[in-house]
């Protein structure tokens, strides 16, 4: 464990909690892409199947359980409890255009052709594009609630910190996982224009509104 990975995990946890609280407190999921949240629940489900088969550390197990529980709670709030506030008209990204390439890639490019390993690879590839429906929805509505931008900032920051974690682990532990690094780079690059808007607008107290 290193400082980049720890702060990365805490940033990820912060993002998940911010979103859950935003929906719960405002009793509304306006501006939130339910499709992205379903993809994240799928990412955690396929990645954390080893929850029952291999014990790495208490921290690892506890965080995995929290992530999975929050992911499904968020999906439930969006499609169940606060379904009336779900903005389906703007959440129209065709997720099959993500799932099919990700499945193919996971089957073709992986570390080992074993079920658990292919599921893990699928999860890594899917996570790198899972935010696209959310970013697409913001571009369609042309704006985002400030709390939603904080959610996206911490979510983007988490994988950015993981990039530094991998540099650290390569240098100090000789650890290197090309699949995770390439997918993590793609994931972080997708946030670049959001980061720019967040830093130049939201941090200056303005509302995030895209040039419609």
């Amino acid at each position: 464990m290193n400082i980049f990975r720890l702060t990365g995990d805490l940033s990820h946890l912060a993002a998940i909690i911010i979103l859950l609280l935003k929906i719960w407190k405002t009793r509304s999921c306006a501006g939130i892409s339910g499709k992205s949240q379903i993809l994240f629940a799928l990412v955690f489900t396929t990645r954390y199947l080893d929850l029952f088969s291999s014990f790495i550390s208490l921290y690892n197990t506890v965080m995995k359980v929290i992530y999975i529980m929050c992911a499904y709670a968020t999906v439930y709030l969006i499609y169940g409890k606060f379904k009336a506030t779900y903005d389906g008209n703007h959440d129209t990204f065709r997720v099959e255009f993500l799932l099919i390439p990700v499945v193919l890639l996971a089957v073709l490019i992986n570390h080992a052709f074993a079920p658990m390993e292919i599921l893990w690879t699928f999860s890594i590839y899917l996570e790198s594009v899972a935010i696209l429906p959310q970013l697409f929805m913001i571009s369609k509505t042309g704006e985002a609630e400030t709390i939603t931008t904080h959610y996206l900032f911490f979510l983007g920051l988490y994988r950015t910190l993981y990039l530094f974690n991998w540099i650290w682990r390569f240098y100090f532990e000789g650890f290197f996982d090309l699949i995770a690094v390439v997918a993590g780079l793609v994931q972080t690059i997708l946030y670049c224009d959001f980061f720019y808007l967040y830093i130049t607008k939201v941090l200056k107290g303005k509302k995030l509104s895209l040039p419609a």
Binding site: R5, D9, H12, R47, D50, S54, I56, N60, M63, K64, Y67, H111, A112, A114, M116, E117, W120, Y162, N165, A180
Partner: peptide, 10 residues
């Protein structure tokens, strides 16, 4: 490659 890689990251 080990058949089941152990992934210790979240």
């Amino acid at each position: 490659h080990a058949l089941t890689m152990s992934h210790d990251e979240l």
